[in-house]
């Protein structure tokens, strides 16, 4: 064993080192999203297995209309694009524009939630009516919870970007990037959900 303070290696070590306590929050968030995605994966697997092996009971009603969820899909996809625009605006240090895109995104999220609520109230079945009804509400409800949280996050980021002194700047992008990543994730989940629940 040799313990050397290694003068000769010093030059190598004095190179700018990766900041030991650099910002790993985005990495952590990705870990969290993977975990969250696995929760959804579990739900999807359950739903698909139910579908494969549990026939619908004789007098059970489980009918889904397509127009509203298609509109919802479009709302979310557009909102992903507008959020992307907000990030771009921040890159160009255009805080005003960034705020505008953020509030539009939040508005789209809200529109999604309202339209989802509307669908809930017009559906011909309730939570406990049958297995598929329960699974439908569990899946869309769990996803809706995510959209609600995401919309709140966007509003908070918007508020922070608006406040004088600018808590959200091109130098401090993390809150915006975190919310954006989360939002894209929630949209992605919706697309899978839409395919599995409505189209299959």
């Amino acid at each position: 064993m040799t313990i050397s303070s290694s003068v000769e290696k010093k030059s190598e070590l004095e190179q700018p080192q990766p900041e030991e306590h650099g910002d790993h929050r985005l990495f952590g968030l990705i870990g969290f999203l993977i975990a969250d995605g696995m929760t959804f994966a579990g739900f999807f697997a359950a739903y698909l297995t139910f579908k494969a092996v549990n026939p619908l009971l004789p007098d059970a009603i489980y009918e889904l209309e397509l127009p509203l969820p298609t509109l919802n899909t479009i709302l979310l996809l557009v909102s992903s694009a507008t959020f992307h625009r907000a990030g771009k605006a921040l890159h160009q240090k255009n805080s005003k524009l960034c705020q505008q895109w953020l509030i539009i995104t939040a508005g789209l999220g809200l529109a999604f939630l309202i339209s989802q609520m509307f669908e809930y109230f017009t559906l011909p079945f309730g939570l406990t009516d049958n297995l598929y009804a329960s699974t439908f509400y569990a899946l869309t409800g769990f996803h809706g919870l995510h959209v609600t949280l995401g919309t709140l996050m966007i509003l908070i980021v918007w508020w922070q970007a608006r406040s004088p002194g600018g808590r959200i700047t091109n130098e401090n992008r993390f809150p915006l990037e975190a919310a954006e990543l989360y939002w894209h994730f929630v949209d992605g989940i919706w697309v899978i959900l839409f395919i599995i629940l409505y189209l299959l």
Binding site: A46, T49, F50, V53, N54, L57, A60, L127, T128, N130, L131, S134, T135, A138
Partner: peptide, 16 residues
């Protein structure tokens, strides 16, 4: 909430 995901009497599936 008395849903029936895993309750066979309500059409659910315990194996899942």
């Amino acid at each position: 909430a008395h849903t029936g995901f895993f309750n066979p009497t309500l059409g659910g599936n315990v194996i899942v």
